[in-house]
């Protein structure tokens, strides 16, 4: 494997693990409610922006604070704020629409997405903000010609830990069992004594928390944050969730990584493949093309068993 391929592989893994974290939120909500929570990407944005605000505040109050402590504190603020947003959305909007015709929750979710963006625009303005890169971005060179930044390593490690944690939560705990039961069948679960409303709210909260972490990592990696930053990663993470098989946790993780790799390699080689006609500014179309192909040829995704044919 030459250096360039290895480099693309690493870049793909990094962005892929961020997609995977976001995709988990989509897939959990879809698994339980059958709803595409369109505003999930914007929860990510809220997480990143809140973290940014906290960091700026801390820098003003305690300039000597160590970067790791600062980042941890920022996360400790950003995660609850995002969770609150996730919970509020579910409580105020989606819960009332649970028995509505199918298009209603989706249209509401789209409205939510734009509402969150608009509110963020009002609070933080339209400009791109520099996101403090508290973890070093000086590239290390483990192999000749291959660059990895410490922030990228942290992203991969944190995502892996979170994914393991979530898997344990869903498979080993009481609330996890309640989640699986609710996903299987609401009514039966509630007959068995599961408080399905609480479980659904909990799912939204967990998903939002993961999105907040993903948002901070995404912003740390690129060093910028703005009100519309959640939209594209949100869409791509949705693609990842579908690619892996929506409703399936392992699928979302796999889908995220695969999508990250495809994007990274695609952007790297598209110019050569199309003889210079297309270049890396077309990077964003890969996700959509994959989404289209998967839905047409294998709507259940790589690992899914659910049938997409739900009106």
């Amino acid at each position: 494997m030459d250096a360039e391929t290895l480099q693309q592989l690493i870049n793909g893994l990094v962005i892929g693990s961020v997609y995977a974290l976001i995709a988990l939120g989509y897939t959990m909500v879809y698994g339980i409610l059958g709803l595409i929570n369109f505003a999930h990407g914007d929860v990510l944005m809220v997480g990143a922006m809140t973290a940014l605000q906290t960091m700026l505040f801390l820098m003003g109050v305690a300039p000597g604070m160590s970067p790791v402590a600062m980042l941890t504190l920022a996360l400790l603020v950003a995660i609850p704020v995002s969770m609150l947003i996730g919970y509020t959305m579910e409580r105020l909007a989606y819960r009332r629409l649970r028995n509505a015709p199918r298009l209603a929750p989706l249209i509401t979710a789209i409205g939510m997405s734009f509402l969150l963006q608009t509110l963020a625009m009002i609070i933080w303005g339209r400009n791109y903000h520099t996101f403090p890169q508290l973890i070093s971005t000086t590239p290390l060179q483990p192999v000749e010609g291959v660059f990895v930044t410490p922030v990228q390593i942290v992203i991969i490690v944190v995502s892996a830990l979170l994914m393991i944690g979530l898997t344990l939560l869903v498979n080993r705990t009481r609330i996890g069992r309640a989640m699986r039961a609710t996903a299987e069948n609401h009514r039966t679960a509630s007959l068995m004594g599961v408080d399905t409303n609480a479980v659904i709210a909990f799912t939204f909260i967990i998903g939002a928390g993961l999105a907040a972490v993903a948002g901070v990592m995404y912003a740390s990696n690129y060093g910028i944050a703005h009100y519309g930053m959640g939209f594209m990663p949100g869409l791509k993470a949705f693609t990842a969730a579908v690619l892996g098989g929506i409703g399936n946790l392992g699928g979302a993780m796999l889908g995220g990584i695969v999508l990250g790799l495809v994007e990274s390699f695609g952007a790297g080689y598209i110019e050569r493949l199309t003889f210079g006609f297309l270049n890396s500014s077309y990077q964003d179309i890969f996700a959509f093309i994959i989404l289209g192909l998967v839905l047409i040829f294998r709507p259940t995704g790589l690992l899914g068993e659910r049938v997409s044919d739900r009106a």
Partner: peptide, 14 residues
Amino acid sequence: RLRGDYLAIVTLGF
């Protein structure tokens, strides 16, 4: 073959 929400996302992608 797509319906409802999947259709929405694919058309958005288009």
